[in-house]
Design a protein around this nucleic acid. Structure first.
Length: 269
DNA sequence: AGCTCATGGCGAG
DNA sequence: TCGCCCTGAGCTG
């Protein structure tokens, strides 16, 4: 269950384990049997992420395009690899490592042109060094859509998911129902640069932590918090619990078939 | 055993 | 806006 930080981390993890050498590839589940057969024995030459899309580059074969969707998972292990279960869409293997892909929305061989078309339809990614928030701002500043919906739109900005959306809006005190065109330039600049910092830290730690040091439970005089999804957050999945800062109950609502979380006490701008 | 829910996204209408 | 696709964990019974 990934946001962009997970995918960038997976790209680096793949290259570290499999880069520059021939890999064995198989599709125990069968849905990628043809692709796996073409990749089998090829050298992994690149691993790249844009938003939630992962690309594994094999010179003779092209790119394996992977999108995990909501349920997909990639798990690494060291050899000897156990027999794959029947849901493994793709297993990569070398002398030392294996990687099992399960439940992806997409796993397909694509050409350079196909890959470029995917880049072209995605917005700037806070984790890509050459990207900046300019293109996103142009669309946001003209949009009558809520900033909450815009942040989840991968054509506008790539890699942000439901957790980063909720948390970055909290950190900037912004009401999620504000319209894009009502955002100020300086508010957007602050959101973008904050996402760069938060998501880089997400890649490093392989989890989403958004709580500022001065708001950590210890600093607030509260007992350490046990979190059920692996990171320290302000509002995500904390519906009806008191806000860490103001004590107001965190609210939740459905927006475009996803759960939105925010603090009505803090997010008033 | 069956249900619900989850850090996503696509295409049909 | 809705239905649909993909998997697995954590309930309930």
């Amino acid at each position: 269950m990934p946001e962009g930080h997970t995918i960038h981390r997976l790209a680096a993890d793949h290259f570290e384990r499999f880069g520059g050498r021939a890999v064995r590839a198989a599709s125990p589940q069968g849905k990628f049997a043809d692709g796996a057969a073409l990749v089998d024995g090829q050298v992994l030459e690149a691993a790249e992420a844009h938003g939630k899309h992962l690309f594994l580059g094999f010179a003779a074969t092209g790119w394996v395009h992977i999108h995990l969707g909501l349920f997909g998972k990639l798990g690494f292990g060291t050899t000897p690899a156990p027999p794959p279960t029947d849901t493994v869409r793709l297993r990569l293997l070398n002398e030392r490592h294996y990687a099992d892909l399960r439940g992806p929305t997409a796993c397909a061989l694509v050409t350079d042109a196909d890959k470029q078309a995917i880049h072209d339809r995605l917005g700037p990614d806070p984790l890509r060094a050459d990207d900046d928030g300019e293109r996103a701002w142009r669309r946001i500043s003209r949009s009558r859509t809520s900033v909450a919906a815009l942040l989840m739109d991968q054509k506008i900005i790539a890699g942000v998911g439901n957790v980063y959306r909720a948390e970055v809006l909290f950190r900037h005190g912004i009401d999620p129902y504000r319209l894009g065109r009502d955002l100020t330039r300086s508010e957007w600049d602050a959101i973008w640069s904050d996402l760069v910092v938060l998501m880089r830290e997400g890649v490093r730690n392989n989890r989403i932590d958004t709580v500022r040091p001065e708001h950590e439970p210890e600093a607030m005089g509260r007992p350490p918090r046990v979190d059920d999804h692996g990171g320290e957050v302000y509002v995500y999945r904390r519906a009806a619990q008191p806000c860490h800062l103001c004590g107001t109950d965190v609210r939740t609502a459905e927006l475009a078939a996803r759960n939105l979380f925010w603090c009505p006490g803090c997010q008033t701008r």
